[in-house]
Design a protein around this nucleic acid. Structure first.
Lengths: 202, 202, 202, 202
DNA sequence: CATGAATGAGTCTTCATTCAT
DNA sequence: AATGAATGAAGACTCATTCAT
């Protein structure tokens, strides 16, 4: 029933981002999104099952591109340290480039109900797996401390970056975000590096 | 008008935690909270200005006690490392003890509208200041790296702990939370310690 | 149960007039009247059956005095014309003296429900009978036209005075009310006088 | 947003008149009006901003037609006396024809809050201006007494007619209303005519 | 007599979703 | 495929009144 493509599909997703960024999650009615997209209310339901589906699709679409971009950037990284650095910097860069998207993913979409947030977490798994694989690779190559609990470390890494971005959004993007990537990276590396590697890194 | 104390005040707050934990934020009607508290709907409004006020008061009340408990525990800590360890462990312990409260603060209350979340952030500031003061103290005593950006580090610490707790709640408390405090502490310390202190600590 | 006298009874009535004049009928809660009267909410119910009873009693009390005053003034009138003139002037004078009361009787109390207004009409009957008796007297003495329908004339007289007062209240008492009594009287007399009496009067 | 026309618009207005006439102002819930109109509750809000808007629109719609009808009838009147007579008779005739409307405009709508009544007064101004223009015309043509205060006379005329109608409604339409128009007219004319005109008129 | 904390019935309005055209 | 008018369920809050003290 709901076609997950077509130019109107894209139009509606982008309209949703704009409307939510401008009006806030709770003031973003389907009719407002339809108007912004230039379609009739009913048309929304030819492309999306329901309102929840718009939000989840929005996140899938944008986050899919988001993760793909990070992966692509990381491919040119040589060392594991560079990979971590690239991951952090491309995470920050992308969100800094699109204020609306940052506002929607960091603040507005988190006001949605549990069922949407569970689906959002599903989408996030791709990114979390990427982080996991980097940590594992570092541990296997001996660069990272073998004793590290991968899951916990992934939560720390993601939680740290996420908190930094959220604070930046809540401060209404009043300072540049990307520069924070360096100190964030430096800090995380200190915690990640294997005992013998510390000096090298320093 | 709204009396911020009395046994009914407490009863209503605790009823709100239970009802929200059981039904989710969006299905927690005032009448349901009143019923759980064993009072009439109208009685709620003798103690709270409106529904929003219940949620903010809930957070203030519980988070006030939460931070006080952490502060008290930290008083018996001798070294700065111990302080950080105590902070993390008492943060985790408290939430592990009260599953309902953890669910409400980590997931449900974050679905509320911006105005509530702004107030919640105000309340959180007490805790964030505590983290700041610990970092500053560590930097001044030479235990922590002087180069550390306090604000960013506070975000990393809070974001890490918060993410760990949120994951635990989302996994429906299926594993013990407190034990994660040690590795979290170990990791954060590695990032915090001043260059010369790393060996000592190890 | 409800005692229709005592100093608190008077206090509550006067408080009601003040509260309604200041806040409007629909924003005059029983608790507000109680506070203004300096008594507890529950005390109101020792003197009045219910809220409706306060309003009716207010009207009875004030209108009783109002009609008594007019009657008294009319006693010293010699001719029937003077009686009419005195009736109109003392009607206007009394309301001009007490802006709060005028506001309450002309505007606010008319927002009450039908059952109150029916009771209010009962109270008004005393005044309407007075008007009737003056008309009848005029007709019997030959001063007024015998052909006049007493009921209709009473409605015209009361309706005219009432409309003039209401307009004055709605214009926020911005002009003196009493002076209008003369032209009102002159007009009504022209309509009332018997054919042969017109010249005399002029 | 609110479309001020369409057959549903009319349906809802007429349903409101009927429901208010039958149940009284304070027992006329929006859902009751919707049911009577044969539409869903929500449909009301496609045509009216809110409940208040229904009542104001009702008055505007009906009173607009009411005044237009009187104006039209008055056009065929030759003399100024005939104009006054026509004005009074068509005022009474219209309300006598529609008992529900009379009940709503004379009693029920006056129980509404100040903001509605202010708007109602705005609508009434059209009628009051009409009365004013007749009085002015009579004064200019020498038929009416030049000394007459137009504003006061308008209040007397409107107040008299209004009181006569209100009494008729409160007596539950138990007697015919229109016949009262003649004596009302006769009375008002006596008061209005210029000194020299009285004999002519008689 | 007096208090005032507690009660609980009652209603307007929003907005996601449908479906006849 | 697209429209947009119509639907109708759902919930926070007020305030007159009571009654234990």
């Amino acid at each position: 029933m709901a076609k997950k493509r077509g130019q109107k599909y894209e139009k509606i997703i982008n309209a949703a981002v704009k409307v939510i960024a401008e009006n806030g999650y709770h003031h973003s009615q389907v009719s407002k999104i339809a108007k912004e997209a230039g379609v009739a209310d009913g048309t929304i339901y030819l492309y999306f099952k329901n309102k929840e589906d718009i939000l989840i699709s929005l996140f899938e679409e944008k986050m899919g591109f988001f993760v793909d971009y990070i992966k692509e950037k990381m491919e040119s990284a040589q060392t594991i340290e560079e990979k971590v650095k690239t991951m952090i910097s491309s995470h920050l860069e992308q969100l800094e480039k699109d204020h609306d998207l940052a506002l929607v993913t960091q603040l507005e979409l988190r006001q949605s109900n549990i069922s949407i947030r569970m689906k959002v977490n599903e989408v996030l798994k791709g990114y979390l797996s990427l982080i996991d694989s980097v940590i594992e690779e570092g541990k296997e190559s001996g660069t990272f401390d073998q004793a590290i609990d991968t899951r916990m470390m992934r939560q720390v890494i993601f939680g740290s970056i996420d908190e930094v971005v959220t604070n930046w959004v809540m401060k209404e993007h009043r300072y540049p975000l990307a520069p924070l990537g360096d100190s964030l990276h430096a800090f995380l590396m200190k915690g990640l590096l294997a005992p013998g590697k510390k000096e090298e890194y320093s």
